[in-house]
Every structure is written in C-alpha cells, then in structure tokens.
Design a protein around this nucleic acid. Structure first.
Length: 603
DNA sequence: TTAGGGTTAG
C-alpha cells in the first residue's frame, strides 16, 4: 500500500547501476595488513575514528571481502561515517555496491542513503531508494518519511511536501511526530508563511506533539529574517517563560544575528552575557556572526581580535569566519590585509571557497585594482571551482567601473557559455555599466533584446536607463521611457522621480522639475532629501532664487537634510550675494549631525 | 548497536 503512495521516478532502474567514483580506482585492494587491523579494531566507534575518505574506502574494501560479510550494522556505521564527512555521493555509491554484492540492508541503511540523496538535492533519487527498499522488504518508518519531507523542503518543493504530509496523516501511513511537524514548519517559514507556521505550532501541541527548542528556533529565526523583531522576541519569551524550554546556542545565534543586522548592539551584547550566565558556550557560528557584524560596521581590527580570542578558547575559525574578515578589510579598502588573511587560510588547513574568492574579488574591483581582480577571477577556475552569478556580477561591475566595456562583454558572454544564468542584478550592472560609459544605444538594444520578461518590468532597470539616457544627452528617450512606465503599469519609485527631476533640471526645465515634485506627492510617492537637493541645485543653476527659501522650509518641515554639494552651492550663491545671507540660519539647521553608534562586544 | 528537524560569509 505504501509503495503506491510514492512516485518512483522513471530513471529509478538506471540509478542502481554502480559507477565507481574516480577516487575508488586502484584503491579497493590496496590496504596493508597492519592498517587493516588498526581499522578493524577501532571500527566500533566508526564515525569518530574514521576522519578521512581514504580510510573509509579502505575499510569498505576490506569489509566486502570478508566471508561471511560483516553485519548490516557495521556497514550502516560506515555509510554514516562517510555521510558525516559530507561525501554524500560516495555514500550512495557504496550503497549501490552493497546491493551488487547482495549484502543485507535495513531501514537504517535506507534512511542514511535517502538522507545523502536529499543533501545532494536529489530527493527524487531518495524516493527511488525508498522504492528499492520496498523490493528488499524494508519497511519505512517515521525517520524515512521525515528525511524525504525534509528533502522536498530543501528543494523548495513545498507543495509536494505538503501533500505527502497530508497523505501520511490521512492514510495513517505514519504517525506524525514533533520532528515531522518541525520540518513542515520550516517549509512554511521558508516561504514566508510565518503565521501558518505559528498556527501549525499550536496545532501540533493540540495533537499531543510537544514542540522543542528546534521548532521554536526555526520560527524565531524566520521572524527575524522577515524583520518581525517584536514577534520574534515575544515568541522567544513564550518559549522560555511559558513553555519552560531552554534556548540553546543555535537559538541565541539566531537572536544575536537578527539583532546585529538591525544594529541593536546593546541587546545583542545583553544576550551574549545571558549565554555566559547560562553557561552556554559560544560556537564557531556565534563568533562568525560577531566577526561579520563588526566587519560590516568597518571594525575589521576588532573582528580580528574576536578571531584571536576564539582561537585562544579552542574554537577553530572556519572558511565563513575568514571570508567575513576578508570582506571587512575589503570594505575598508585595506587590500593588503585582506590578501594576508586570504593567504593565511592555507596554514590553518582551510581552503578558500568561491565566496571567499568573490569577497576578495569585490575588494579589488571596488579599489579599481582590475589586474589583480582579473587574475583572481581566473584563479577560481584554475583551482577547480566554478564562479557563480555573484562572482560574475562582481567581476562585471569592476570591469565597467574602470570603463573596460569590451572585457565586460567578454565576461558576460563567458558567463552564459558556462551556463551561469544572469540575474536581474547582472543586467542592472551591465546596463548601468554601458550607460556610464556613454554606450546608451548598446544599453537600450540589450534592454530590448531582453524581451518581455521580469527585467522588462523592473523599475530599477527602467530607472537606470532613464538616468543613462538623460545623462547622455538623450532626454527625449528618457522622457519616453518614463512615460512607458504608466503603459506598463509600473510604479515609479522615489529614485525614478529623482532621476527625472534631475533630468529636467539638467535640461533647464526647472518648472517641469518642480511640477514633477508635486506630481510624485500626488501619486503617493514621498520625496526624500535627494529630491530636494537635486531640485535646489537645478534652481540655483538656473537662478530661480525665489523658490529657494520655500524649498528649504519644506525640507525643514519634512526633516530632510542638505547634502555637501548643495550646501556648497548655496554658500557660493550667498557669497556672490545672489542669495540673501539671512538664509544661513535655515541652512545651518539642514546640515546633518553626525550620529555614530557602533557595536562593542565583550565576550 | 547504526538513521530524521534549527543558526554564520560574497
């Protein structure tokens, strides 16, 4: 009956053909007898003892040669050890080999292999393994279904997860437990359905399944990520004070991360103290979160101190920790230090990944060190990694920034040749790059080539083109694009209006610019400081001095401030007596005051 | 004597 529920993919049969991975070749029988004894002796705590793939493969080789074969438990432990090292596909291949040998398998074997398939984003193959299990009389249990459900959620196949979940309950194929509810809650949160997730939390309690710290942490984290901070903190309180569930390091990490993202340093610090009081020690994630927060605030040196501290405390920083630090130094333009950190990773046994490379690449690009950037970019492929869309976007931005449009085109083509799909950011970078390098025609033709897709109805893309056209003396095109928005049903945002107002001013059409300010308010789009600064600069340039005081007063009323170049223009006009010095007092009020609030963690 | 759910970086 259960078999009927599962859709076994058509390629299930071919899935069970054994293809030895390259690593296996010539290694199946190369174990020495002394090694063999050591490995067998320690095989009881296999996942602890086996720390590298070679040992695992050697042991597997040895085990499969025994007569009779070792117990299914021993094989399960080995598969599990390989999976723990994240060599998921290897674990799957070992499973296939076991089946060729007709070695016995049980539900633990099946569950481990399904988990590996799911981790490889191959949940459909996971279902095929389930089907194969049926053939071998292996009856799935709650763990099997939970693993598959989790795989579906991992692949964003939320509707399939939902229907499987409902089917399991309706047809009483498996009693849902707290973990199953938790997986479904995670799926709901992933798709922004926090309310439904909370409803399911209540429902599971009603059905006698007690949510635990994991269930709560998932929702708390999701609320934070959706900026529903008060809800997140309230749920945290409910968990601790009403339900008596103690938060653990993961819960704290989510809270601290969320608060840091919102610059609520005091509260984050308070939580760190709370952890100390509760004797919950910080883990690598916690330190990485702090390192990242400090780096984003420009405090890379403090972040470096945190890393030294964690090392002192016996916690090894990982690739994520160092990538954040590299990013931090890049943000400060301290490329020598960023490169030093990058180079030091090897000595700590860490291999920079594509994110690490992209961070450093971004630093070089922002500093216009384009030769270094290009070199690093090519190194990624040489090291056997594949640049992803973010890597390409970073490189493209760098090339256009220094005006190397031809190289930009090449990288853009290379990207598509390597099947990396450009996203909206890519197109934004390329279009903006072309516009900034006086290639508005090319930008417009690329825009038309893009056809009728999401980009064509993207207000950011339109705004870039409007700005590009207007800055390149093609204001008629800018105007046309702006008018197209209404036809397309696109809502201009404050940036779009600012670009148009700036365009009108550039053309000396100050009254039209002023009219557009009124129009945007009418349309429900509130102007910001930039709007007023742009308009003021236009007015000052074309000597419509009668409007200046009125605009400044409006700005004061709205709590906006003047930017440096507008202030300087105003002062020039006052100096030249084309504006009245009595305005100085008002201008003084509109100069922004520096407000600095930075994190300081005592850990 | 083995299997299932949560947190970090570009």
């Amino acid at each position: 009956m259960v078999a009927a529920v599962m859709a076994i993919p058509k390629n299930a049969a071919s899935f069970f053909v054994f293809h030895p991975p390259k690593k296996f070749k010539g290694r199946f029988h190369s174990i020495s007898s002394s090694n063999r004894q050591t490995l067998v002796k320690h095989s009881r705590s296999m996942s602890e003892k086996i720390t590298n793939l070679d040992d695992a493969l050697k042991l597997f080789d040895e085990m499969t040669q025994k007569q009779p074969l070792p117990s299914v438990i021993k094989f399960n432990q080995l598969l599990q050890a390989v999976a723990k090292m994240k060599h998921y596909s290897c674990s799957v291949e070992l499973f296939k080999h076991l089946n060729i040998l007709r070695a016995p398998i049980d539900v633990y074997t099946v569950n481990t292999v399904i988990k590996c398939c799911c981790q490889l984003f191959g949940t459909s193959e996971g279902f095929a393994v389930l089907g194969y299990g049926f053939k071998c009389a292996v009856v799935p249990d709650a763990c099997t279904f939970n693993t598959l459900l989790n795989g579906l959620v991992l692949e964003d196949r939320i509707l399939e997860a939902e229907s499987l979940f409902k089917k399991l309950i309706k047809e009483e194929l498996c009693e849902p437990d707290a973990i199953m509810y938790t997986i479904m809650i995670k799926g709901l949160c992933k798709f922004g359905n926090n309310d439904t997730a909370i409803a399911l939390l209540k429902l599971m309690e009603g059905r006698g399944c007690k949510p635990d710290v994991v269930t709560y942490s998932i929702i708390i984290d999701s609320l934070f990520k959706d900026k529903m901070v008060d809800d997140a903190l309230n749920l945290f309180k409910e968990m601790v004070f009403n339900k008596g569930i103690q938060p653990d390091v993961v819960t704290y990490n989510s809270l601290i991360h969320g608060l840091c993202n919102l610059s609520r340093w005091d509260e984050a610090s308070k939580l760190l103290n709370e952890m100390e009081d509760e004797r919950i020690s910080l883990d690598v994630h916690t330190y990485s979160i702090l390192v990242d927060a400090l780096c984003k605030e420009g405090k890379a040196e403090d972040a470096n101190c945190i890393i030294n501290l964690m090392i002192q405390r016996g916690k090894d920083p990982d690739v994520v920790t160092y990538s954040s630090l590299i990013d931090g130094y890049c943000l400060r333009g301290e490329m020598r230090k960023a490169k030093e950190v990058f180079d030091s990773m090897g000595s700590r046994g860490l291999v920079p990944n594509v994110v690490t490379y992209s961070s450093l690449l971004n630093g070089y690009c922002k500093k216009l060190m384009i030769e270094e950037a290009m070199h690093l970019f090519h190194e990624i492929t040489k090291k056997g990694m594949r640049p992803n869309v973010i890597t390409y976007n970073t490189m493209l931005q760098g090339l256009f920034l220094v005006g190397r449009c031809k190289d930009g085109h090449e990288v853009f083509n290379d990207m598509r040749a390597h099947n990396v799909i450009p996203n909206e950011i890519t197109y934004t970078i390329v279009l903006e790059g072309l516009c900034n390098n006086n290639q508005v025609e090319e930008a417009l033709s690329l825009f038309h080539l893009m056809g009728d897709n999401k980009l064509n109805s993207n207000i950011f893309v339109y705004t870039i083109l409007i700005d590009g056209a207007s800055k390149n003396g093609k204001f008629d095109i800018a105007r046309k694009l702006f008018n197209d928005l209404r036809v397309k049903g696109l809502q201009p945002n404050v940036w779009t209006y600012n670009v148009m107002i700036s365009g009108f001013c550039r053309e000396g059409l100050v009254s039209e610019a002023k009219e557009l300010l009124l129009k945007m308010e009418e349309m429900g789009c509130q102007p910001n400081s930039v709007t007023y600064n742009v308009l003021l600069q236009g007015i000052l340039k074309y000597v419509h001095h009668d409007m200046v005081e009125m605009l400044l007063l409006e700005m004061e009323g709205k709590g906006f401030s003047l930017d440096a170049s507008t202030v300087s223009m105003l002062l020039d006009h006052i100096k030249a007596r084309s504006l009245d010095a009595s305005l100085l007092k008002l201008i003084g009020k509109l100069v922004p005051k520096e407000e600095v609030d930075t994190p300081c963690f005592v850990v």
